[in-house]
Design a protein around this nucleic acid. Structure first.
Lengths: 334, 334
DNA sequence: TCAGGTTATGTAATCGATTACATGGATGTA
DNA sequence: TACATCCATGTAATCGATTACATAACCTGA
């Protein structure tokens, strides 16, 4: 593979001149420039970004560690991050933590070794020693979608509090009282926050929550199905199942269908997290929609702010309730 | 940031010894090894993969360029590639071509500059000069999901011919005659092959295909919707709409629902490409399922074979028909 | 004509690792 | 004791770019 030295020899100039051409340095004659370009083309020269990065101490690369690439929410997030990074001249390396702490740490390590300029993490677990150390050392981190308690790192996240309150109001107005929540894992900020917001909203509306009506899942469809089964098997099953993310909603749907129950007649269903196909389920699923693309865009902005030495401020964007038919024939009252 | 030199000084050894410890070279005393590890820990040393790659001429990195990250098929594919690569000690850089040739070429260029060891491409368009040149130069390429005519590169793909034949048989047995196909773009091998297989299967079953019944979409939901509208507006609309991928099926569903038509009574619907939510649409969507995860796994195996100097052979895996209810109350006859 | 300035280009150090080869001390053997 | 072997470790070249500094050529004005 041709090196800069070969191009220089072929064009009859020094490597410095070739490098100047590569970097659009204006102090190169138009004539020399064309000669260098010609040499590059003839040798099929491809600049070596590895060597460049070593010298310049910058890779023009961002790392992104997401919870689960099979989750459409993260897919949309990743796409937005990609687009925004690309527009700023950065390449993105995506790591899939698969909601496991070891996988997450593996990627943190690998991406730091690769010397990414910045790292966007959707933390997958409780604080790990590695992440804590990197944060303390002032590594170029930003948390996306989720935060970690006690770790001082700027974050970009969605706030579902208002939307959950609106959902509970909607359910209540339709006459539902026994409402169950399949939460995310308590070790994730998103899991805890949604649970907290749900309990607060229920209290506000004077609705009681049986302890067995709050079940902790793991943001994967399997747990949605298992926990739905458990809820439906209770002596007094809930009238509404509210699932904490789109995959667990899918699992709940599986179980409800398998039992031949009707929605919302036998049991109503709502989802935190909206996906394009919810309108096509019969009945269409009422859901809380998160601004995934906007989160990704803002995440990149924040990390670039950090890298540029500008103050990096945390961002919180509201999620919104989208009323459809899966909780009953209501029109939107929020 | 600590360098290998600092670690060496701190541990009272040479850089060579530290490097040996990093690379698990057995000719290092147990005692020295622990001293070096201690120094690394104390200095929070993170090896610089950029420097290592420059020296070793290998990045332990694979590039993956996919058509559209928002398409669940590619998400599943990407996840499988990731998993397989990781198991072999490789990191994956994913590029999203967004089904556009320029984007694809941008990533080909960038990833080659980054000196990825291998490149998996789901070619997004007709042959581009760049891809052709890289292929001719013997670059470490493998095509995934799609192939390019006249470009001699190993490929891993799914073959839907049998499944499409089974689908047409199924439709015919249910009494359908007027069957329309929303194909993918003719510039993609997957688009052409599915269309070819459809026309062949129709001919085999003695079914005629009106020219207006074959419409070319672009593998995005918008075109699915537009073309469904066009089909339904024909003087004699089709009895069945068969969409060439899951996103266009989503678009078709949008349009059918918007018109208040019933499936399969007013119009039946089938999809090439299955996704987890198809069973939950009412009626559940009959679809042809592609082995996306297996494709990804095999793709990695093929590229690693190439890198390892082993012969890299193209792979073709069969897709299978999954009969549900969206074409009528049939049981599977295939 | 020549000091001083400008401009295009070249020379060589540098980034942080790996690794071929050199070295020196310990051990074994005759 | 003398010499060959072996083993752990060190020295220094190297990968391919960037860039501070040096330099040569040319121009300008007195």
């Amino acid at each position: 593979m041709a090196r800069i030295k070969d191009v220089a020899a072929h064009a009859g100039v020094s490597v410095a001149t070739v490098s100047r051409v590569l970097n659009d340095n204006p102090s190169v004659t138009e004539e020399t420039r064309t000669r260098v370009y010609a040499a590059m083309r003839e040798l099929s020269y491809v600049p070596n970004a590895v060597a460049r990065s070593l010298r310049t101490e910058a890779t023009k690369t961002l790392g992104l560690i997401i919870g689960d690439i099979a989750n459409p929410f993260f897919a949309e997030l990743a796409r937005a991050v990609e687009d925004a990074a690309r527009a700023a001249g950065y390449t993105v390396i995506i790591g899939n933590a698969d909601e496991r702490a070891e996988e997450q740490d593996h990627y943190v390590r690998t991406l730091l070794e690769q010397r990414v300029d910045g790292l966007l993490i959707c933390p997958t677990a409780e604080v790990t020693p590695l992440v804590e150390e990197v944060a303390r050392a002032g590594g170029p981190l930003v948390f996306l979608d989720r935060t970690l308690p006690g770790v001082h790192v700027p974050s970009v996240r969605a706030d579902g509090t208002d939307a959950i309150r609106a959902l509970v109001a909607h359910l209540r107005q339709l006459g539902h009282r026994r409402i169950a929540f399949i939460s995310g894992p308590a070790r994730l900020s998103t899991g805890r926050e949604r649970t907290g917001a749900f309990l607060a909203a229920m209290a506000e509306h004077g609705l009681e929550v049986h302890p067995e009506y709050v079940q902790a899942g793991d943001f994967r469809s399997g747990s949605g199905r298992t926990l739905t089964a458990r809820l439906l098997d209770l002596p007094e099953p809930p009238q509404v199942i509210f699932a904490g993310d789109n995959l667990m909603t899918l699992g709940a749907l599986d179980e409800i269908r398998a039992r031949g129950l009707r929605i919302p007649g036998d049991v109503a269903l709502a989802s935190f997290d909206d996906v394009p196909w919810f309108p096509h389920v019969n009945p269409a699923i009422t859901a809380i929609s998160q601004p995934a693309a906007e989160l990704g865009k803002r995440g990149v902005r924040v990390i670039l702010d950090r890298l540029g030495g500008r103050p990096a401020e945390s961002v919180s964007l509201p999620a919104v309730l989208v009323v459809r038919q899966s909780c009953g024939e209501g029109r939107d009252v929020s």
